[in-house]
């Protein structure tokens, strides 16, 4: 309650909250040290909680200023480990851009997972976006190349590239991802303009290793967090944002096409303290 005083129990309670939100030990310890230092002049639990929220806010890396002119087509490549929600987030994004009146083209560059092409096709249909697909088992770099070429030829505003989920520890698959990126750049200098890492909110500390290795391979520019409609708080993305200086663009809050929201750090932090 608001009148509650600041004591060891409160500190223990806050520490537990940070750890169980998946913020990680390093950040938790750092945050606890910071608020202990600042707690002297404070008298209520609410004040201390507010100090903690303000400190947490500093973890998030804000996106830089928007580029003076947006290239067209604007090419976004989705990456991440298996099952995080890349294809679904891509479908939601396609819808968002369509709703803004943009012409959207999707590259079905997950040619590996069973029925990945069929899945992204359904999303394309739902969003009313064009799709470029090859056969299952085809070279994903060729699909991405063709899609960018088609996007340029047809005057698409946005090209969204779906890639297969892969564990960052699989060197050959990370090489394949680099190759996809290179082939896009070869067709269209400077593309992809965004490389979006999709992280599942239920992920624990491993997301740090994922983001680090994906970044080294393909240069991440932003991330999105899915499945925040569950009970997981997704605190690890604060750690990723802070250590990688990577902004968070969107959050996924369900499986439907409209379940995408722009990331709001304040709301995200408030939710860490909801029960």
């Amino acid at each position: 309650s608001s009148a509650k005083s600041i004591d060891d129990d409160l500190f223990d309670n806050l520490e537990e909250r940070l750890v169980t939100s998946d913020l990680g030990i390093d950040i938790t310890m750092d945050m606890m040290a910071r608020i202990k230092k600042k707690s002297r002049g404070l008298s209520t639990a609410d004040q201390l909680r507010q100090v903690l929220k303000d400190e947490l806010l500093t973890l998030f890396h804000e996106p830089g200023p928007p580029a003076p002119s947006i290239p067209t087509p604007y090419v976004i490549m989705m990456v991440g480990v298996n099952g995080t929600g890349k294809t679904t987030t891509l479908g939601k994004l396609a819808m968002k851009y369509k709703a803004e009146g943009k012409k959207v083209l999707i590259a079905a560059a997950d040619t590996f997972r069973a029925a990945a092409i069929e899945q992204v096709e359904i999303w394309a249909r739902r969003a009313g976006a064009d799709i470029v697909r090859h056969k299952e088992g085809a070279d994903p770099a060729a699909v991405a190349y063709d899609a960018v070429e088609a996007g340029m030829a047809r005057g698409a505003d946005v090209v969204l590239i779906d890639t297969a989920g892969r564990l960052h520890t699989q060197k050959n698959l990370m090489e394949e991802l680099k190759k996809i990126k290179r082939s896009v750049d070869k067709k269209y200098k400077g593309a992809p303009h965004d490389v979006m890492m999709v992280i599942d909110a239920t992920t624990g500390q491993n997301a740090l290793s994922q983001a680090d290795i994906f970044h080294k391979a393909v240069g991440l520019t932003q991330m999105s967090v899915t499945k925040l409609d569950g009970t997981a708080k997704g605190g690890i993305v604060a750690a990723v944002s802070s250590t990688m200086k990577l902004p968070i663009a969107y959050i996924g809050v369900g499986e439907a096409i409209e379940d995408l929201q722009e990331f709001d750090a304040k709301r995200f932090i408030d939710a860490l303290f909801d029960d």
Partner: peptide
């Protein structure tokens, strides 16, 4: 369950 699951594993 996913081996990468964090603290929420107990709730799930």
């Amino acid at each position: 369950a996913d081996a990468m699951t964090g603290q929420d594993a107990v709730n799930i």
